[in-house]
Design a protein around this nucleic acid. Structure first.
Lengths: 221, 221
DNA sequence: ATCAGAACTTGACGGCCGTCAAGAAATTCA
DNA sequence: TGAATTTCTTGACGGCCGTCAAGTTCTGAT
């Protein structure tokens, strides 16, 4: 099993000294998942905290009608599983590696011990929760009230802003992007073609998008 | 200012003894809001934890196009504002009293002191967070992937299940229910009429609904 | 009890966007 | 590199549901 480092990646341990980090590092277990493999599924017991050491994981739910909804895209340094570190719960979502991914996990009981010892951890976990909650609130509002066109335009500008560049590669297949935005791959193709026709963006091979007119994109309704 | 009791209402303080509860009770501030009044608005500084002592508060966001999205309906004993008890943040949502409402608040610094003294509080807050997150995840998935008909059917059966009765009064105006489900008052009227026509429910005066066929309602797509 | 205003219902209409299908492009893997 | 598979694009079509409008019921304040 590859010995990838995780602990120093994660903001929730940021207040700790290197000695303490080493202690934690000795507790974690290491896992590797090939692209396309499943990390966890709905109804799995949720008994450990997961840290993405390297790679990309999509977390999604299935609706009653079988359609998929992408909730989070976990990147290097992101964590998941905090939801039930204190109560026995089962997962309600699926996790799937989009690329070869290294993951570290800490068992619930071990993590509870850590929180006893280092109270700063619980405060950091609360902050992670808070950010995730606000992000999800915005996503809910957006999918419930705005058009596909507006949601896509927003997604593009936000992604560009996060990467601090006007030209970037879409980090997801259109199918996954579609389930994230609550629409279909076809609609995304069409709207991107529309934006390009309007001169707002330029599409290049390899899912690369160049933004030509941010202001106009943001006005899209 | 009315001296309503709050502290013993709230699950986050459940592990504490009555003496400690009294201490906390002496810290909180009491507020009263008439029906229709605003408790907080977007961009307000978020510097205290809010406990609903009595009444009902709707928490909603505004989308870029001005449309409203109801995120939570706070009832007696619910709390809000945990999101930023540790980081300086501003609110991103609005809070409005739907009925005359009593609220207690605890300032951020006071709450941080409490968490230092009683670590059980932070664990309880984490659990509240977790529940809210799962609820929001389900809501996101539902509005993004299911039809208005299915969402409404689900809402009716869930509400009935929560109240443990087949006949109940809708706790919201159709306008608010519409923004909760991501649709319009007109569509809700139509779908309820459809359900009644199908014999699945019976509508009675005063927003009262009686469920006749739960199983069939749950099969609605 | 009465009345004004809000909330709700119902109808008509149209557009957004999801679905199905087929061909093009891109990616993967031997 | 080349073939197989997946992903993407584009077109045609139709239905869900949002919008506008007008009438009705409900509510709450005087």
């Amino acid at each position: 099993m590859a010995e990838h480092e995780c602990v120093q990646l994660v903001p929730i341990f940021s207040e700790l000294g290197s000695e303490q980090l080493d202690t934690i590092e000795s507790i974690v277990r290491h896992h590797h998942y090939p692209a396309g493999s499943t990390l966890f599924g709905a109804d799995d017991p949720l008994d450990s905290l997961m840290i993405v050491a390297n790679g990309q994981v999509k977390v999604y739910q299935l609706a009653a009608n079988g359609r998929e909804q992408l909730l989070y895209l976990l990147q290097t340094g992101d964590i998941d599983g905090e939801a039930a570190l204190f109560e026995n719960q089962r997962r309600t979502s699926f996790g799937e590696a989009l690329v070869p991914t290294d993951v570290c996990s800490i068992r619930r009981s071990d993590f509870q011990d850590l929180m006893q010892k280092y109270p700063s951890i619980s405060i950091n976990v609360l902050n992670v929760f808070g950010k995730r909650l606000s992000q999800l609130e915005r996503q809910t509002t957006s999918t419930a009230t705005e058009s596909v066109e507006a949601r896509l335009a927003n997604y593009i500008t936000e992604t560009a802003a996060a990467l601090k560049t006007d030209t970037f590669k879409l980090p997801l297949k259109k199918k996954d992007l579609a389930t994230f935005l609550g629409t279909t791959p076809e609609s995304i193709s069409r709207k991107l073609a529309l934006f390009e026709h309007q001169g707002l963006i330029t599409q290049k091979p390899g899912k690369v998008i160049e933004i030509n007119d941010v202001d106009q994109l943001l006005l899209t309704e």
